[in-house]
């Protein structure tokens, strides 16, 4: 069983670490769902969603490396990370409807995290804020993709 560590969001680095954990967990959830025989009819779209979350990890790593600037390394004091921790263990035997509901909750929680973080980041790093906002909107789009399955 994979373990994920969702840190307190008290710094820019820890916000990105939280996001990386979200992406790692979410891609693993989709990989798990895509591998289940009972969900074979949705295998390809689920694999595509897993891949898209892996790609987002690369974007986050790049953001952390390229955008950090000591002039705006301010402590972050207004994000309560416990509001955004996702359920990472998919119950056994879920059908397509159950899988959609489980993954949909993950996408919506992630979306809230990214959109709220984006508001905080706006006063620190405008470019990072844009990236976080875009990710939040992608989560919403992913939820719509799930609904359409």
């Amino acid at each position: 069983m994979a373990e994920y560590e969702f840190p307190e969001c008290t710094s820019f680095g820890s916000v990105i670490r939280f996001a990386l954990e979200l992406e790692k967990a979410t891609s693993a959830i989709y990989d798990d769902l895509a591998a289940r025989p009972e969900l074979a009819s949705t295998k390809e779209p689920l694999k595509a969603l897993a891949d898209s979350h892996r790609k987002r990890s690369d974007i986050l790593e790049h953001t952390r490396r390229e955008k950090l600037n000591e002039m705006i390394l301010e402590p972050i004091q207004d994000i309560d990370s416990s509001n955004y921790v996702i359920e990472t263990e998919v119950p056994a035997g879920v059908d397509v409807a159950g899988a959609k509901e489980f993954a949909g909750k993950v996408e919506l929680t992630s979306s809230r995290f990214y959109l709220d973080s984006s508001k905080t980041a706006k006063s620190l790093l405008a470019e990072a804020a844009r990236i976080l906002e875009r990710m939040g909107k992608e989560n919403e789009a992913n939820k719509a993709r799930l609904d359409a399955l």
């Binding site: 680095g13 950090l68 600037n69 000591e70 390394l73």
Partner: peptide, 12 residues
Amino acid sequence: KTIDEARGETRR
């Protein structure tokens, strides 16, 4: 220093 500070310094 913190890892954020060190990463920022590395970038600079």
